[in-house]
Simulated scan of single mutants.
Amino acid sequence: MSEQKNQAQKDLWNTFAGERWTRRQVEIDAMLAPFTHALMAAAKLEHAAPMHVLDVGCGSGETSLMIADLGHRVIGVDISAPLLGLARQRADGRDGVSFEEADASDAVFDEPFDLLISRFGVMFFDDPHAAFTHMAQFLKPGGRVVFVCWRPPPENEWVTMPMQVLAQVTAPPAPLPPDAPSPFAFANPERVRTILETAGLTDVSFAPVDAPMSMGSAPGAAMAADFVMEVGPAALAIAQLSPEDAAKVRDKMEIAIAPRLKDDLLSLGGAIWVVQARKP
């Protein structure tokens, strides 16, 4: 494996993003809960015969632990050592689940899988065609792929609102090329269909799901601003601002959040694809 392969994402998730997502794990799992539910419903693991499952980009272990609790064997893989450390703590010796620090695009496994599942973990490969072709080798014939990925940023209020506030203070980050590794690299279903079919997968389908996402658990605009400024596409850009500009963003963020509060808490809209495919 080239040392440079997916290196930018490895660096990000072992430093800035990994630290923040580890510290905010409870709130982030709550934020993503509607889409975790959609993912698990599509996977159809409840009441199913025991399966061997690969959880790609498992992060702090939420989905892997849910799968194990349903009686299946699951290997969670991720490139983030901080998140995997938390996942292992949460597992606390639970049967049927293990975690590996590995890049799923070239990891090798001893047994084939019945299911490859991912909650927002497959959009970051430098070469997604090669990554899915590699991962598909480890699916049994008839094995399934089920993952969730974000639809375009304009459909996701949790992205547009913070970016609009940031733009009031400084130029927002330049948009990445649509095919660059990012949370929104799989927003175009035709691109994703081509990636999956090139990997030899069939029966590719996309189901849109929209849901409100909780932005932190602490009440009030100030605490919601803390969360929004730490998690999401604007977080890195905000962290790189001068203290004076960061303070301006905070003031404007609280002003933008205040009228959106309901019962003193903030929710913002999210929009995803639930993607399914099968190995013939």
Rank of each mutant, 00 (worst) to 15 (best):
F16I: 02
A171G: 05
R260P: 00
P128V: 01
W273D: 06
L265G: 00
W13P: 00
V204T: 10
M163H: 08
T198Q: 07
I117N: 08
I117P: 12
A104E: 07
G93F: 13
N6W: 04
V209C: 08
G59Y: 06
D92G: 09
L196A: 07
A68D: 03
S242Q: 12
R260Q: 07
P172Q: 04
D126S: 10
N156Q: 07
V74E: 02
Q9V: 14
T160F: 05
M40T: 05
R24A: 01
L139D: 09
L115T: 12
I67C: 03
E100V: 14
V249F: 06
I272K: 01
N14A: 01
F99L: 11
R191H: 09
V274Q: 01
E46M: 05
P34A: 10
L201D: 05
V231Q: 09
T198K: 06
N188V: 03
L261K: 03
W273F: 13
A225Y: 13
R278F: 04
S182M: 08
Q9R: 14
L176A: 09
F227V: 08
K252W: 01
F109V: 08
P154V: 14
P112N: 14
A187R: 06
L39S: 08
K279Y: 08
S105D: 04
L116E: 13
P34N: 07
T63W: 01
E111T: 11
E254L: 00
P177A: 15
L39K: 10
D251L: 05
G96N: 12
V249Q: 01
S242C: 12
D251Q: 05
P219K: 12
D264M: 08
P259M: 02
A258K: 15
C149N: 15
D251C: 03
I28L: 11
R20M: 02
R193P: 03
I67K: 11
G71R: 14
G61V: 06
C149G: 13
A8H: 08
P280I: 02
N6E: 04
R278Q: 15
A234R: 14
K248D: 10
I28E: 06
P183V: 03
L268Q: 01
R119Q: 15
A68R: 09
A174E: 13
A131C: 06
D210F: 11
D210W: 06
S80R: 09
R151P: 13
L236E: 14
F120H: 11
S2G: 08
L201M: 09
H52L: 05
F16S: 01
P175F: 06
L84H: 05
L201A: 04
W21D: 00
V122C: 15
F206H: 06
A104R: 04
K262M: 05
